[in-house]
Nucleic acid binder design. Structure first.
Length: 318
DNA sequence: AAGGCACCCAACCGCGCTCGC
DNA sequence: AGCGAGCGCGGTTGGGTGCCT
């Protein structure tokens, strides 16, 4: 009040900057899942984060949001970006709105690092090699399908083999999630109109049950990483048929997302590493469950400092 | 093997717009 | 109508990582 000129977005004194830690991520996710993000400015304080609201917003929108589709861009997406950029210029948010699951930041980076160059080299080459796909198709979710064409078809001339993308496929894999009409899948799902049964084709990362975070989120975390490889290949044939199965489905969806999240955040390794962690966690389950019931302290802290530290000895130092 | 270089991408910065008072 | 707070957007930066010499 009474302050002239642009107010700083926050009081930056004592706030963390730079890369987000695992705990910060989880705090943010847990808070938003429970309370939403009505007020970004107030959020960090309420969530116990030493970050400015802007930073939280960015982190959520560009990285933590469950409907983010991570991983390489498909050629269709790349072409769509190029076409949309012709139409819209550097309106990254507009372009992003036509590419579900992609963020403006991601698209901007993609454009600046790859597409600009690619476009330049294309212009030098005869156009005959290009396929005349209209950009409109990109605004439809139908552009996005299983990862079978993702990766190989990645136009990346460099043929990147970034090992950090090992879980990329998880995020793009489409899974069938049996739903009822009341299931809110965060607005990212698209009904597959070619299927009669009530199943959704979801990007894997989008298969986030609404009940994930608190307190179910925490108990699920306690359940361990689960066998993600089996979850990834799960299909509609496993569609649940009754209430009990629905409950199982809900738990499964939760595990799927938690699995994704844990991998994404580096909580669990892939493959056998995950298996060994699972075993460890199973052994701890009873004790952890009991602990959760009896503790009233900040659940996120509890998870990180008791469960995670034992799972990942390097947590805290990494 | 080590140092330098180039690239990528997450995060930051600051401006403009919108909305509420 | 004017002002300020908050949010969203686009441009830029810098740390991390892989490649090259």
């Amino acid at each position: 009040m009474g302050r002239r000129g642009r107010a700083p977005c926050c009081d930056k004194v004592g706030l963390n900057k730079g890369s987000w830690s695992l705990e910060e991520d989880m705090r943010l996710i847990a808070y938003i899942k429970k309370h939403g993000h009505g007020n970004w400015r107030a959020l960090p304080k309420l969530a116990g984060l030493r970050r400015c609201g802007k930073s939280c917003r960015l982190r959520w929108i560009n990285y933590l949001r469950p409907d983010i589709k991570r991983g390489n861009f498909t050629t269709e997406e790349e072409d769509a970006i190029i076409e949309l950029h012709k139409l819209l210029g550097n309106k990254w948010s507009k372009i992003a709105s036509c590419l579900p699951g992609r963020t403006d930041n991601e698209i901007k980076n993609m454009w600046n690092t790859h597409l600009k160059k690619r476009l330049a080299s294309r212009e030098r080459k005869p156009m005959a090699t290009q396929k005349p796909e209209e950009s409109q198709s990109s605004s439809s979710s139908s552009t996005y399908r299983s990862c079978s064409d993702h990766g190989e078809s990645k136009s990346d001339e460099e043929g990147r083999e970034d090992p950090s993308l090992y879980f990329t496929d998880l995020s793009v894999e489409m899974i069938d999630v049996p739903i009822g009409p009341d299931v809110d899948v965060w607005g990212v799902a698209k009904y597959d109109t070619h299927q009669e049964e009530a199943a959704l084709k979801l990007p894997y990362a989008a298969a986030v049950p609404d009940s994930v975070i608190v307190p179910e989120f925490l108990s699920m975390m306690m359940e361990g990483c689960g066998d993600y490889s089996s979850l990834i290949v799960s299909t509609g044939e496993e569609a649940m048929e009754d209430g009990e199965e629905d409950a199982k489905g809900e738990g499964k969806k939760s595990s799927e997302w938690v699995g994704y999240l844990e991998k994404e955040l580096g909580l669990c390794g892939a493959g056998e590493e995950t298996d060994s962690i699972n075993r460890e966690r199973l052994v701890r389950d009873d004790a952890a469950e009991h602990q959760m019931e009896t503790e009233e302290e900040d659940p996120v802290s509890s998870y990180f400092h008791k469960d995670l530290v034992s799972t990942c000895p390097s947590f805290g130092s990494c």
